[in-house]
Amino acid sequence: MWRATDETLLAGFAVGDAGAAETFVARFQRRVYGVALTITRDARLAEDLAQEAFVRAWRHAETFDPRRGGVGTWLTVITRNLAIDAMRTQPRSEFVDPDELEWLLPPASEPDPAETTVRSNDADWLRRALVDVPDEQRRAVVLAGVLGFTAQEVAERERIPIGTAKSRIRLAMSKLRRARAETEATR
């Protein structure tokens, strides 16, 4: 079962195959929990959200579309949305400051494969591209893209006009989009 593709496991999971479900959860639980924990910073809540993310994946497996990314990406988006919903009751000031997210910082050296907790090389282009994104733009993108802030909330959090918040988001995203296109072109 461990050799099964992610999509095959998802199909088995979708119909309630216990073996497929156990393998599916085991394969992705660290990733799902990592997203929930990063956003909520509450281990117990993160575990509850991770469980809920898997249950939602089971219920809505037919919404998975491989043209938009892999199963893991789909799961992390589900988890992120659940975590953001859970945090909506909290003041925005309670959210983690993007500057505290060490994983956003450019690597000081080549990552040690034995120590790295990042899953694949698929996002390496993004890590490299973020090096060239100014801090204030990176903060705006993370607040919006990871922590679920609207542009207005980014503006309030950063104490800047909303036009400035939007500009930061758009400039950063434009750079990242170009970097992604260049990476795709060289593959």
Binding site: R30, Y33, G34, R68, T76, V118, R177
Partner: peptide, 30 residues
């Protein structure tokens, strides 16, 4: 294209080990 970039941001988030196995409660919910 922008959505792919946005999704990729989540790819950078490091994994973490939950304190308990998640499969049993997920299977129970199923």
């Amino acid at each position: 294209e922008y959505a792919s970039v946005a999704d990729s941001l989540l790819e950078l988030i490091p994994e973490a080990e939950p304190t308990a196995e998640l499969a049993p409660p997920v299977l129970a919910a199923m």
